[in-house]
Design a binder for these strands. Structure first.
Lengths: 141, 141
DNA sequence: TTTAATCATTACTAACTTAATCATGTAAGT
DNA sequence: ACTTACATGATTAAGTTAGTAATGATTAAA
């Protein structure tokens, strides 16, 4: 019932790339690391996973870096989270159980709720919210 | 984003006590352990916490055991889970962050969804579901 | 009043997970 | 070549999890 730092970082990295979309220039890890507040050495591994999942492309060499592999509106949070494997509020694999008792069903219902919420959110949505949030905050000055 | 075994066990222990309500005879750990499929040595610690949270009473000595401290309909899952401290899909304490950015707000939304679901469920509800489930299963014979 | 059954408390631990870092390798532009 | 970047695997310190062990305290009953 906890979002791991890794998953949080993954989404932040994706959002950071999405906020620059449709700029096609590759962003390098150093920049993403700074803007998304993720340790650079850690971010490398996260980006490799995101690449293997098909969410980002990488370009090696001197002018290398990362780009989004899809349009922000095509990337749904539910898919990222599901594929990341981090979901499942109840780890049924590890506990040998009936899984059809009232309590297991309750945990499963919670899973469904989470998925339902995430289904409605794309990277594009997050971009809009972030920009909107920025506006609200600027009024505070 | 995972329900710990401890929390799962805690709810199972409470449900086991609730299923016997309003029988006021104390049940001893051994029985609860067997029926709820929780290691006895582990269950002791869980029951102590549940006692400190006010959900169960304990009676020591030869005819001792545990009883529910409240009626099943008075015990809402949302309270148990919240007081257990296990909730919070995103651990904001440990990561120094703004907490008002789009991503943090998304994790917070997930928390709210979980709480919303749990608010609607009491131990009495779980009892009814469990009994109903038993009926359904017995038709399979 | 001993004894046995039960709850209470503290300490310990093996296994696992998390959140990284380090070292080294590979590719590509200048 | 040289530099700059991504790639990969190994390692690791700290924390959490899911228990177990040992011992103490309380009470009913023989």
């Amino acid at each position: 019932m906890k979002v791991s730092a890794k998953m949080d970082y993954a989404v932040r990295a994706l959002l950071e790339l999405a906020l620059h979309w449709p700029d096609t220039n590759p962003r390098h890890i150093r920049d993403i690391s700074r803007k998304a507040a993720v340790p650079q050495k850690f971010l490398i591994h996260i980006l490799i996973v995101l690449k293997s999942l098909g969410y980002v492309h990488s370009i090696r060499g001197k002018t290398g870096g990362y780009t989004l592999a899809l349009e922000p509106r095509q990337i749904r949070l539910v898919d990222v989270v599901k594929q990341w494997g981090g979901l499942g509020s109840f780890d049924e694999q590890k506990r040998k159980m009936k899984k059809d008792d009232a309590i297991s069903l309750l945990w499963q219902q919670i899973d469904k709720d989470i998925i339902q919420t995430l289904k409605g959110v794309s990277l594009e949505d997050l971009c809009n919210r972030q920009r909107q949030q920025g506006k609200i905050l600027s009024y505070d000055i």
